[in-house]
Every structure is written in C-alpha cells, then in structure tokens.
C-alpha cells in the first residue's frame, strides 16, 4: 500500500490515520488552487529567509560600509538592492527585516487568535448578559481605527518593536471575536450540540471540543487575510518611528528612512516596500485559497 493510499483510505484504522487523511484531503484541495500555491510559496519564502537570514545576507545589516564611497549606491551586482544613506546593504537589511516581520506575524497570530476565539465563542454560546458585556467591550475596541488605537497603546507603553506587537495584537482581536460569535450562534442550537448536552457534557467541554473547532477554520482564514493589514500596521508604526527603533532593519522604518531622498535615490524606499508588497500578497492569496478549502459556504 502506498502512502497516498494509506492517507486516502476510506477505512482508516487509527485516530492518527483518520486525522492525517483528512489533512491530506484538505491539502489536495488547496494544491489544486494555483493562486493559493503562489501565496503559500511567498509565505514559505518569508519563513525560510527569516530563519536563514544570517547565512543568506551578504553583509551586516547594521554596520554599513565606507561612508565616503558606499553611500546611496544604486542596485548593482555587488549590492543587488543598492545601499542606503549609512552605506548599509539594503538587500541584507531587507533579509534581516524578514525576521522582524515574521515575529510580528507569529506573535500577533498567537496572541490575537485565542483571545478573539475565546471571547467570541463564550459570548455566542452563553448569550444573555455575558454576551452583552463581552460584545460591548468588543465594540468599543472596534470603534477606533486600528492604527490610531495601536498608536495610543504604543504612546502609553513606549516605542519599540515588542510594544508595537502587543499594541497590534490588542487591537486586532475584536473582528475575530465577532466572527467567532457569529459562527457560534449558528451552531449553538444544532442537534450535535444538543446531543452533547444530553450526554451531560459541561459547557467548557462543549465550547472547547465542539464549538471552537468549527469556528477555528473561519477565524484562521480571517487571520491569514488580515496578516497583510497587520504587516502594514507594523510597518506604519515603524514608519512613524513608534515601532522598531533604528538601527533595527524593520521594513516600515526603512521606508521612512528612504523617504527623504525618494526622488534621487528611489531604491532606498522602494526595496523594503516591494518586500512588504510581496509578503502581503502572499498572505492574501493563501487566505483566499484557505477560505475556499476550509469554508465551503463562502465559495462562489
């Protein structure tokens, strides 16, 4: 029996085989979507570049070359993306910047997704005053534009990449809570939840074991689609000087740095901009593909 046959078996013989088989079917469906694969490639490239940055980057991202001869060089074989005003190789800085971007993405996903899921499913499942309290709190967060709220948080916490991440995470969970609540409302009264109640399952067990898995896929899709926005917010904070601090090679801060001479030395601001564009596009394409696979309701 080949591995594919084992995975696609209609009669799995163990819990693990069933789960892997299910994952493999999802993967096959995702693989059939060419744009999603382009997105996945871009996201994987971001991860690979971030992990291998010290080995890929030809120069040091912080310490520049000779200020007299190497400043603001146009792209060349020696410096594929040119150099900036401190004679640093932009290519190396973009590569190291991938680490910061990846860190933002991962940390925000890890912090915001569980908060949103927990608040949304709890509010939707219990209803009543719990719902009212939790959703009004969510509404208050939603009432402010994300960047403004993040700005306020950073202003309170002090500038720096860690505080920027916390600020973004704290401002990005409300849409997930809303989404999880809406999903929970549609399944709260379904017969399989009733059946679990009839077996004497506790509310916590139902929430965690029955409701959350069904909300998870749509929230994951939403988080993936939001990643572009999160990266842009992080870059925006960096641009405004409230995120990553110099000399950290954060893409937004790099654009801010290059803005002063964008007319004469276009590559300084453009190169990190292209990196932001590519990664945002990757997450959007992947999110679209995931939605088609995980959330058949939204399919056209």
């Amino acid at each position: 029996m080949t591995r594919t046959e084992w995975l696609l078996s209609e009669q799995p013989a163990s819990r693990r085989q069933a789960r892997l088989g299910q994952a493999y079917r999802t993967w096959l469906a995702l693989k059939a979507n060419r744009l999603a694969m382009v997105g996945l490639t871009l996201v994987l490239a971001l991860i690979a570049v971030a992990l291998l940055a010290p080995w890929i980057a030809p120069y040091d991202p912080i310490v520049g070359g000779d200020l007299r001869t190497d400043r603001l060089q146009p792209p060349s074989w020696e410096h594929p993306m040119g150099t900036d005003d401190l004679a640093r190789d932009i290519f190396s800085r973009v590569i190291h910047g991938a680490r910061l971007t990846l860190m933002v993405v991962v940390l925000v996903a890890v912090i915001a997704t569980p908060i949103g899921l927990a608040i949304g499913t709890t509010a939707g499942y219990f209803g009543g005053w719990i719902d009212t309290v939790l959703m009004r709190a969510t509404d208050i967060f939603l009432a402010f534009p994300r960047l403004i709220l993040a700005l306020a948080f950073v202003a309170a916490l002090g500038p720096g990449i860690e505080n920027a991440i916390i600020a973004i995470a704290l401002t990005s969970w409300p849409p997930y809570a809303r989404l999880a609540r809406a999903e929970t409302l549609t399944i709260r009264d379904s017969d399989f939840i009733n059946a679990a109640r009839l077996q004497g399952a506790s509310s916590l067990r139902i929430l965690w074991g029955h409701v959350t898995p069904l909300c998870l896929s749509s929230v994951v899709v939403r988080v993936t689609l939001d990643m572009a926005g999160i990266i842009l917010t992080a870059a925006g904070l960096g641009f405004l000087g409230l995120g990553a601090q110099p000399p950290q090679p954060e893409w937004g801060a790099m654009i801010a740095g290059g803005r002063r001479f964008i007319i004469d030395y276009w590559w300084v601001a453009t190169m990190p901009g292209l990196a932001i564009f590519a990664v945002s596009l990757g997450f959007n394409l992947l999110g679209d593909g995931l939605r088609d696979v995980l959330d058949p309701k939204a399919r056209k």
Binding site: S190, D191, F192, N194, L198, P213, L214
Partner: peptide, 17 residues
C-alpha cells in the same frame, strides 16, 4: 435517558470521527 434526533446530517459533529 438518551435521544436520537431526526436529521442524521445535523446530529453528528462534522469534524469528529
């Protein structure tokens, strides 16, 4: 006391084996 529901498509959790 246990119960069996009408619609077998709605009474089983779609993500549970």
């Amino acid at each position: 006391l246990q119960m069996v529901f009408q619609d077998p498509y709605a009474s089983l959790h779609p993500r549970h084996t």
